[in-house]
């Protein structure tokens, strides 16, 4: 566990110096928000699509895609700079490596989540009907699951030839029902102030976090071998 923390701080320190992952993730998610605004301009202006619904769905698209961007760099960078071998030589469990990577990714993605939520609110003059805290809470729970499965799949795809394309292909089907759908529902309920309606969703997201976390923890050894 300590090893995981050290590895996570290492990743975060590097990020603090360059800030390139967070900035690219953030710009990416900002662009998605803007793209949504343009794509659904008519529907939003005419009131056919409520801001509540737009917020819930577009934020989760942002989070998912930002995760894909962040995950990709998290391992690809190590691979390209050939520091992955160094990491693997560390006298720590590979499982600790998984937790460390997941932890640093969680911090980065969550920062992007917060920024996206903030800027969505600013751009659309939308105050989440006074339930921003709940929205952030749902974002945190969902992001944990997202990051756990994302870290594992990123490590899986990093050795493949077409890793940039492969990561979303491998990741999106896995998160479609485990993260995106329940999170969008929970976020919509959170904005409506009815988070209690979504206890089932939250439990299922957390359940998937446990499953993905356990699989990642147990099998990371095999993913990053040789």
């Amino acid at each position: 566990m300590r090893a995981a923390l050290i590895l996570a701080t290492k990743d975060l320190k590097i990020e603090l110096r360059s800030k390139e992952v967070v900035s690219s993730m953030f710009l990416f998610s900002l662009l998605i928000v803007i793209a949504f605004r343009f794509a659904f301009a008519e529907a939003v202006d005419s009131g056919a699509l409520s801001l509540e619904d737009l917020a819930a769905s577009s934020l989760w698209i942002c989070f998912s895609f930002a995760t894909i961007v962040g995950m990709h760099t998290s391992f690809a960078k190590e691979k390209d700079r050939e520091t992955l071998e160094g990491l693997m030589l560390c006298p720590v469990d590979r499982s600790a490596l998984f937790l460390g990577k997941a932890l640093s990714n969680l911090v980065l993605v969550f920062i992007v989540d917060l920024l996206s939520i903030l800027f969505f609110g600013l751009f659309f003059a939308f105050d989440y009907d006074g339930h921003a805290v709940e929205v952030v809470g749902v974002a945190l729970v969902g992001t944990v699951t997202l990051v756990l499965v994302g870290t594992l799949v990123a490590a899986i795809s990093v050795n493949a030839r077409a890793r940039e394309v492969l990561l979303p292909i491998l990741l999106i089907p896995l998160i479609a029902f485990s993260v995106i759908i329940p999170c969008v529902t929970a976020t919509r309920n959170a904005i409506a102030g009815e988070l209690t309606e979504s206890v089932r969703d939250i439990v299922s997201i957390a359940g998937f976090a446990l499953i993905f976390g356990a699989v990642g923890y147990l099998s990371f050894d095999y993913v990053l071998e040789g």
Binding site: V149, L152, V153, I156, N159, A160, L170, P173, L174, S178, F208, I211, F212, V215, G216, S219, Y222, V223, E225, G226
Partner: peptide, 15 residues
Amino acid sequence: ARARVAAVYGIVGFV
């Protein structure tokens, strides 16, 4: 490597 990595994805994907 292919067999190892695919095996892990085969396990995760089973959810």
